[in-house]
């Protein structure tokens, strides 16, 4: 049976490893992949008047840049590996948004790369992996 795997992808080496691993799994089991790119965003941040004015334009630019620079090359790579693939781009809190994408897509699994954060920063701000482990609606695979 074909399942959907949501791969959290931000262009980093760790996320590339997660995608590579997802490709091997998908090839082995006939699964499909959704490459999910989340742009960190909080609706409760503070902006200056000029930032407000330009926000809509910036958002379009950011989405376009992410599409061409980050997602497009990977899309080709996954297609070349013979795996059915789609992309998703959203703004929001990274872990929460990945969960929402998994829900919306009816995905069975979430794959992410381990960023290797440890120590005080991770304790204070939490890591995406730790948050996902706690709130994800589907099994999460963390690729080192």
């Amino acid at each position: 049976m074909s399942r959907k795997i949501v791969v959290g992808f931000d262009g980093s080496d760790a996320s590339r490893r997660a995608l590579d691993f997802a490709i091997t799994r998908a090839q082995a089991q006939g699964d499909s992949i959704v490459i999910a790119h989340v742009l960190e965003w909080s609706p409760y941040s503070f902006l200056s008047p000029t930032e407000l004015e330009e926000r809509h334009r910036r958002r379009k630019e950011e989405l376009q840049r992410a599409e061409t620079a980050i997602l497009a090359p990977e899309l080709k790579r996954v297609q070349a590996a013979g795996v059915p693939v789609a992309t998703a781009m959203r703004y929001g809190h990274i872990a929460e948004t990945l969960c929402r994408i998994a829900n919306d897509e009816g995905a069975a699994l979430i794959f992410i790369g381990r960023m290797g954060e440890s120590g005080i920063a991770a304790r204070l701000f939490g890591s995406v992996a730790a948050t996902l482990a706690q709130v994800s609606p589907v099994p999460v695979t963390i690729v080192p």
């Binding site: 965003w41 609706p43 409760y44 503070f46 902006l47 407000l52 809509h56 950011e62 989405l63 703004y91």
Partner: peptide
Amino acid sequence: AGEVSHFQ
């Protein structure tokens, strides 16, 4: 999300 919110 990513657009100017009411809060902002």
